[in-house]
């Protein structure tokens, strides 16, 4: 913990302004997810709805450690990372609603988009399949001498796909600037984590690749930020990848169509007391004099921004049917 000349504490070396920025992104992420669920229930969504409720601190805290020139390869519960990396709410909702003006022009939904300007490359439904791709981006980035780091995510289920091993091992052998976060949110769809791993900690796998591994509290945004920053700095120095297991709880079902009745109620309750937003808000109130007025103005700003983006998405046309066969091949 650092202190400045006034005695103000700066956890993780962050200023009050930066802490408030983290707070904004945590709340924006939660509010976006809530809006997506609302649209789903209103029958306005195309396809399924996947939220990151419970995962906000992991997505926001980790991506906050990136620079503009770094690459983000997020997963479906990392809306917060998209937002921190600079993605607009407009593009988020255009994607969710399959509009003609979306980044994929309606060819794919949710976070399955790429935005090369922002260096965001979204996921595919085959979880872990993007790990080798992200590793290849790290390889190319090093070849181009960009001094950039690739941050990629996977879950407690997806880390059992072979691509996890092949990608992380290749990155380790080649000492690539690559950081992989495993979001251990206790359930892979309906399968509890104990049925996915015999090992107590997923981060123990790091030893098998000869790289550092950490298990952290994924509901503590500052701990996530600090750990990721350490890993990103190490990667940028050319010392290779890091594996970070961020322990969280998936507070909703796998998707909006899943009532998650298989999750024990007392387990959910115990995690509710560790809500990432409430935890960080308490830190800000007690240590940084976050005022009621600031809380309310943040909420109002977020509400207005989301409503504006949804309105724009609703106004945008659906893609024209005749475009469906275009662009299978590049020219």
């Amino acid at each position: 913990m650092q202190k400045d000349e006034t005695g103000q504490k700066h956890p993780a070396g962050l200023t009050r302004e930066q802490l408030l920025e983290l707070y904004y992104y945590l709340r924006l992420t939660r509010a976006c997810d809530d809006a997506i669920l609302r649209l789903y229930k209103q029958g306005k969504m195309v396809g399924g709805a996947y939220t990151g409720n419970g995962n906000e601190a992991t997505a926001v805290g980790s991506s906050y450690a990136l620079r503009r020139e770094d690459y983000l390869f997020p997963m479906h519960r990392d809306l917060g990372a998209h937002l921190v990396k600079g993605q607009s709410l407009r593009n988020i909702f255009f994607q969710q609603l399959g509009r003609a003006g979306s980044l994929t022009r309606g060819r794919d939904g949710t976070g399955h988009y790429a935005d090369p300007e922002l260096r965001i490359y979204g996921n595919v439904s085959h979880l872990a399949a993007m790990i080798p791709v992200a590793v290849g981006a790290a390889l190319a980035s090093r070849m181009k001498k960009q001094n950039a780091v690739v941050l990629n995510y996977i879950g407690d289920g997806g880390c059992n796909v072979g691509d996890f091993h092949e990608g992380l091992n290749m990155a380790a052998v080649m000492k690539l600037p690559f950081v992989l976060i495993v979001e251990n949110n206790q359930f892979a769809y309906s399968t509890p984590v104990a049925r996915q791993h015999a090992a107590a900690r997923i981060s123990d796998r790091a030893a098998g690749y000869g790289i550092p591994g950490f298990t952290i509290d994924g509901t503590d945004v500052l701990q996530v930020f600090e750990t990721t920053r350490t890993a990103v700095e190490r990667a940028r120095r050319g010392e290779g990848p890091t594996l970070i297991e961020s322990v969280t709880m998936r507070m909703h079902g796998h998707s909006a169509s899943d009532d998650a009745s298989y999750v024990p109620g007392d387990l959910l309750e115990s995690w509710r007391s560790k809500d990432p937003l409430a935890r960080f808000e308490a830190v800000l109130v007690s240590g940084y004099s976050l005022t009621t007025a600031e809380k309310e103005s943040t909420g109002q700003r977020i509400h207005d921004e989301i409503e504006e983006a949804i309105h724009a998405a609703m106004e945008d046309p659906a893609p024209l049917p005749e475009t469906a066969t275009e662009g299978v091949y590049a020219l």
Partner: peptide, 8 residues
């Protein structure tokens, strides 16, 4: 997979 990423 790495070839795809490098090509991107």
């Amino acid at each position: 997979g790495a070839s795809v990423g490098a090509a991107l």
